[in-house]
Design a protein around this nucleic acid. Structure first.
Lengths: 380, 380
DNA sequence: AGGGCTTTCTTTCAGTCTGAAATAATCCTT
DNA sequence: AAGGATTATTTCAGACTGAAAGAAAGCCCT
């Protein structure tokens, strides 16, 4: 029901009933409960049909509840406050003072408290979504391994729950971003999805039946060392031709430096040069796009999702290569895929990090998995 | 509930309640309904605890219902009758007289009717599972493409339902086999699974949350053209190093002929020679095992299933190479996988084809997806 | 202004499913 | 034959559902 409200903005009860297949009676009962709990509110009625009892549009109550989120990145923490619809009310970025878990957590907690106090307007917080890179076990809320921060087995959830007194949802950043895409991005109407992130690291998240598939080790989505045939670049794992070695920003930038196209290894500089007309720079970026397409073909062949969403600086910084990616994926794939429709760039803008941490909370909320928030129908 | 009965054989109601988490009251109600409908029966009581009211073991009623199945292969049709537990009551193989859909279907229907009449003992048939190679759309029951039989867009289900008057479930053979593994094989206790078949063709099936994931084109599990780096064998698709080109029986047999190891391209002959001590023959098989392991590493990294099940003549005919497959997969995989536990050979014997067609019916039955069979609790 | 008309929303009612707890059943032990 | 132990059944109340009847709230028309 909440999904119908999310998807269709302010919406009258009778439409909800039609969309969800529930009876009007059930919708009324549920909405009264949700109105009482402060999750929904009556929206100002817009001009509607000129006959019959007027529609009463229902919408999320953006005043009484908020979701909080934080993304713990290599160099900075992004914190966010958002309403139930996922609209960001405020975000902030904090440069790390130190990378020790204790210091990062302390800083994030302090500033998140402050941000919430200032922008939540007295609303209650549903919970806190924590998006963090590397290998994460969401069930226990533990960061198993994060090279960027140098963390190993950090019990993030228990620490944060203790100091914030709110439900905390820890998840890998790639999976969090996939959820954001699923709720607020281009994948809202899709059942299965593979989200592919290509930036300084590469990773994927698999969604089947609108549920993230994590696997027993919470490690599903590992595409870094998928072997591609198109090159023999050496990967940090010691092997040759890994997807990671061919597609990360860093790899490309280093190649460009080797070839004297740019002075410092920076992907932005390389894109700049390519846009300036440099043939070899463009060739490098084209080659990466083909590698990405090649990898996608493998993923699409194996998983055949409704949709593939591409994200990360490796894709968004130079969208002009999307066509190459699509063409390569299509030609490598035995399936007759419609690449224009099934391979899409991320629908989230610059606020991906903030949105993705928020998506963790709202996903749990919509699924009724949040510990203290359960909705049952009222009977009088 | 039925799953508990399937897993734990004859089992008293109170145990079912404990296993399923239902209350004893609900279990009683459901069992009485299922007993009345002839799905369950009271089993002969075995000697049990020597105090208290004796347990009444409940088991499937193997007399009043059966499942029927057929596998349409390249050269022959396998037909089967089985009880609700999946135990085969009778199977038969029919060589095709012709490969036209009409001829194959007519023959299969005739003989399946006869087999059922003879071995079902008056039991009703739940439905007919049809396992067929190639690209199949199970929703519409259409065989989109099957090269072995030369079929294109054959509306198999509608034809069979008309002539048999029973619910018909059409599914690709690989997915049917994965279901059989899920219900009767080594994957009964597992939530997610990738089933990898390697024989004259290669293919996979993906199970997440004990449900087959098919994807929008019903094409999930395509691993044939996944690129491996270990060789440059040319695939029928025109590319180099495809998984298919490196691992099918036919490919291996042809290689062996090229190298003069055997006279006729036959995988069995090659295995024979290798077992006889031929170094180059063994090297060929070892190389295939490593290729398979390499492919598995990609699959495991991406999907991270609870379990990988290997099947098909490419694996079962020469089980001595399983260790190589596992070792290669483990070494190629960045995850710390326990290959001995998570990569297993199929748990089904020679009756795979029959069992897999039966699994289609029982899977639908257990999920209550069979059109005329729905169970609701009784109230008096 | 007030009675129809139309549509939305609410309430009533009956039905289904559930589990807790009381009750019945059935065996073994003494 | 009574007592004990345990399983199976029934009774009961609670939760949820949809169908249908009823109330509400606007417009239209005279």
């Amino acid at each position: 029901m909440l999904r119908a409200v999310l998807a269709h903005g302010p919406i009258p009860r009778s439409h909800i009933a039609r969309l969800t297949g529930l009876s009007q009676a059930s919708v009324t009962r549920l909405t009264t409960e949700l109105l009482a709990r402060g999750f929904l509110a009556v929206a100002p009625s817009t001009a509607t049909a000129d006959v019959g009892r007027p529609l009463v549009p229902i919408d999320f109550d953006v005043r009484s509840w908020v979701a909080l989120g934080m993304h713990l990145g290599r160099d900075r923490t992004t914190i966010a406050v958002a309403d139930l619809r996922g609209t960001l009310l405020a975000t902030d970025e904090l440069g790390h003072e130190a990378r020790e878990p204790a210091a990062v957590v302390r800083q994030a907690v302090t500033w998140l408290r402050r941000l919430a106090a200032r922008h939540a307007g007295g609303a209650q917080a549903l919970g806190v979504g924590v998006s963090v890179g590397g290998w994460v076990d969401p069930d226990d809320g533990i960061v198993i391994e994060n090279d960027a921060l140098g963390w190993r087995n950090v019990p993030l959830r228990s620490r944060l729950e203790r100091s914030l007194g709110l439900p905390v949802l820890v998840e890998s950043n790639v999976r969090a971003m996939a959820l954001a895409e699923l709720w607020f991005g281009v994948a809202t109407k899709v059942r299965s999805l593979v989200y592919v992130f290509i930036g300084n690291v590469v990773g994927a998240a698999i969604v089947v039946g609108r549920t993230i598939h994590r696997g027993p080790l919470a490690a599903a989505g590992g595409i870094a060392h998928m072997r591609l045939a198109s090159s023999n670049a050496r990967c940090s794992c010691g092997r040759i031709g890994c997807f990671q070695a061919l597609t990360t920003d860093m790899h490309l930038a280093e190649r460009a430096v080797e070839r004297g196209l740019i002075a410092q290894p920076s992907i932005d500089a390389l894109i700049e040069v390519a846009r300036g007309g440099s043939r070899p720079a463009r060739a490098l970026l084209e080659a990466r796009a083909r590698s990405i397409g090649e990898g996608l073909a493998v993923i699409i062949g194996l998983v055949n999702p409704d949709l593939v969403v591409l994200a990360g600086s490796g894709v968004t910084a130079a969208p002009e290569y999307l066509a190459t990616i699509r063409a390569e994926a299509r030609s490598r794939c035995v399936l007759p895929i419609d690449a224009e429709r099934t391979i899409l760039p991320s629908g989230l803008g610059a606020d991906v990090l903030a949105s993705s941490s928020i998506a963790l909370v709202l996903d749990a909320f919509y699924r009724q998995e949040l510990p203290d928030v359960t909705v049952r129908s009222t009977r009088r």
